[in-house]
Design a protein around this nucleic acid. Structure first.
Lengths: 205, 205
DNA sequence: GTCTATATTACGATAGAC
DNA sequence: GTCTATCGTAATATAGAC
């Protein structure tokens, strides 16, 4: 399509979201001004409002896109049949890889919940519960089949999610541990925490 | 000492910190104005500056007081000798109880780190590392004595702290689970995660 | 599509009266 | 010890020129 020279609509829209994500993650939503974002994008502040209704909508769009992409990505993972151990391993591997590749979006999704207006907050929370309930299903099946030993699967979900998300607070690529190394260690901790017998786990890869 | 009627210095100072802690936890440091705090305290904004140098100092004082109280409280716990299992149990029980009784201060101490100026940030981080290294010592001793089986004690510390801190995101007193009920379940998960043999643990209380 | 300019409101912090 | 009033700055968002 013909576009005016110097007109950069789609590019500006993308850069706006990228800059906002970076700045919100670094300094926090409330501490970042629209002027700062505009400066990062390389336009004046007025130009931003061609692409967003207001600052709140910008935050919500970022978080909503993140949660949607998360659910979509998990659904796109190949299924591993009925074996709870295999499904748990798949979940842990997916969760760690996916979250460690998106540190800014993940950080925002956990830190900025309180800056969402009530309706927006409810939508994001619903998406998160959906995602976490997939893990819940794995744990419940595992307990029912006797391969996991867990006093409370609901707390098991909370515990595992918290354990895994904690990695984002300290992991930096290129240090002592690779993603694979971290994943192996955390897999051991998760399997142990759900009371999976070491004998029941498949040969390590 | 004689104090002018209507003069409320110490009370105002305490209420200022209490209000700031409550509001910072609810809405975030950057989103809370000094005017809001003053309104909660029941004074005009100018009066606040009798008790704090500026807003940043107020945040730092809250976080510093929190971390100092945390270290002091852990040190005041009775020692349990050399047995790593007993020390781990003591740590978990202390950490959960202490953190669940101070949800606002805990929330601030994890969420507002990025709003600290560099010097203040360094001080708070040093205090946190000190505290977490106490758990590190327990894990290292346990591994050395063969009662824990953990591939990486440093990641063990990160994992356990994240697991335990996650409780603050969902626990509410007076619901289905009591503090004691939660603690028992989390103790099981922690013991399992560090690879402690169930046979090695003392009789349940 | 972006700019400049601006309306409106709010911020942190201080000065001086009481 | 607290109040009122204010300084100087910056916020979000919009209007209209180009």
């Amino acid at each position: 399509m013909a576009r005016k020279i110097g007109s950069n609509g789609e590019k500006t829209a993308a850069e706006l979201r990228a800059a906002a994500q970076r700045l919100f993650a670094r300094h926090g939503y409330a501490a970042v001004s629209m002027r700062q974002i505009a400066s990062e994008v390389g336009v004046q502040v007025g130009a931003l409002y061609l692409y967003i209704a207001d600052k709140q909508a910008l935050l919500f769009e970022l978080m909503d896109a993140h949660m949607t992409a998360l659910s979509d990505a998990l659904e796109a993972e190949p299924s591993l049949g009925d074996d709870p151990s295999a499904r748990l391993e798949r979940f842990v591997r997916f969760h760690l890889r996916w979250h460690l590749e998106r540190t800014d979006a993940v950080f925002i999704s956990y830190m900025e919940l309180r800056n969402l207006e009530p309706q927006n907050f409810a939508k994001i929370e619903a998406r998160r519960r959906e995602y976490e309930d997939i893990l819940g299903g794995i744990l419940r099946d595992g307990v029912a089949q006797g391969v996991f030993h867990l006093a409370d699967t609901r707390l098991g979900v909370f515990g595992i999610i918290a354990l895994l998300n904690g990695v984002n607070t300290w992991f930096r690529a290129g240090r002592r541990l690779s993603l694979e190394g971290v994943t192996a260690i955390y897999l051991d901790m998760v399997r142990a925490a759900v009371g999976q017998k070491p004998a029941a786990q498949p040969s390590p890869d």
